[in-house]
Design a protein around this nucleic acid. Structure first.
Length: 305
DNA sequence: AGCGAGCCCTGCGCGC
DNA sequence: TGCGCGCAGGGCTCGC
């Protein structure tokens, strides 16, 4: 479900509450929600109890809470398709799909619970060791330390990260021999982008999802990058995209960017630019949405002789 | 290197 | 009203 803007909304909501908070208790209701923590439920609970949380950090769609009072490690969270992190005061009703609960004592907010709620259980929590970043820059947004969880080390920086290396991105993208949308969804090349924002940015840049990466000009890649940043920033300013109660911020509130989408989920409706009906097409076991006029299919590559 | 398929899951809305 | 089907914001692994 959540892509960069939605995860950032969650990070920003957690930050003031969890920074400096002490973990008083941990309850794992659904062990499958720890699939990123291979050492098991008991290890997760013991490792966390009594620790102090320093910050809330995000890179791409990954979120983590660095821990003090012990080894360099962090609570790692990936929300998958349907995960939520919700702040709950006291036990005001148990959330329906509550999987894991962290009970905290927050310096700013007093006793508070972070509830990991996840319908499909594609998301996961873990305690993961922190390792140095390769470029020496901060691991992600929300912390100055040049550390990332080991499971995030292979994830590229996202386009809103000040340390995102534009030249290197352009070079690596153009060295690929694949379709542009496939490349945008590859979190080891650029992170934070999922099905919604890939479709939106490609529409903004007038590119077809199958446009070959090795035939894009540098200028075209920079235009696409600008569109990506624009759509991610706008969505973030709107509190993210919600189609239903599945994506919400830490207080359970929906975002409003869904009302501003140009192509995603708008099959049959007019392209905001030219009025042609948006089409939905199967793509990688999912769907792609595009304007058939503004985003023409690429010319087929000439057969190599 | 890149790609398709399959896997991990639950629940909603739709058509019959 | 009930049932089956298709669909959903992701990521990882495997075999070709």
């Amino acid at each position: 479900m959540p892509e960069l803007p939605e995860v950032e909304v969650v990070r920003a909501g957690l930050e003031p509450v969890v920074a400096g908070a002490r973990v008083l208790g941990v309850e794992v209701i659904e062990p499958r929600s720890l699939k990123r923590h291979p050492r098991g439920v008991a290890d997760f609970e013991e490792r966390l109890a009594g620790r102090r949380i320093r910050a809330a950090v995000r890179r791409g769609k990954f979120l983590w809470l660095p821990l003090e009072d012990g080894p360099d490690e962090a609570v790692l969270a990936h929300l998958g398709m349907s995960g939520q992190l919700l702040l709950r005061t006291e036990d005001a009703g148990v959330d329906r799909q509550l999987r894991v609960r962290l009970v905290l004592e927050s310096p700013a907010f007093g006793p508070i619970t972070v509830a990991f709620v996840d319908q499909r259980i594609f998301g996961s929590l873990a305690i993961d060791p922190l390792v140095p970043t390769l470029d020496g820059a901060p691991g992600g947004r929300g912390d100055d330390d040049a550390l990332v969880p080991a499971q995030v080390a292979h994830i590229a920086r996202d386009p809103l990260d000040p340390a995102f290396d534009e030249r290197e991105f352009v070079r690596r993208l153009r060295a690929r021999r694949t379709g542009i949308k496939r490349a945008l969804l590859d979190q080891t090349l650029i992170s934070g982008i999922g099905n919604i924002y890939a479709d939106e940015a490609l529409w903004g840049a007038r590119l077809h999802f199958d446009a070959p990466t090795d035939r894009l000009s540098r200028a075209a890649v920079l235009t696409l990058l600008a569109e990506l940043r624009l759509v991610l920033e706008r969505a973030l300013a709107d509190g993210g995209t919600s189609f239903d109660a599945q994506y919400v911020n830490v207080n359970g509130a929906s975002g409003y960017f869904g009302q501003r989408l140009s192509v995603y989920g708008r099959a049959g409706k007019p392209c905001p630019r030219c009025g042609a009906p948006i089409v939905r097409e199967p793509f990688m076991n999912r769907s792609s949405h595009r304007c058939p006029v503004c985003q023409r299919p690429p010319r087929r590559r000439a057969a190599t002789a």
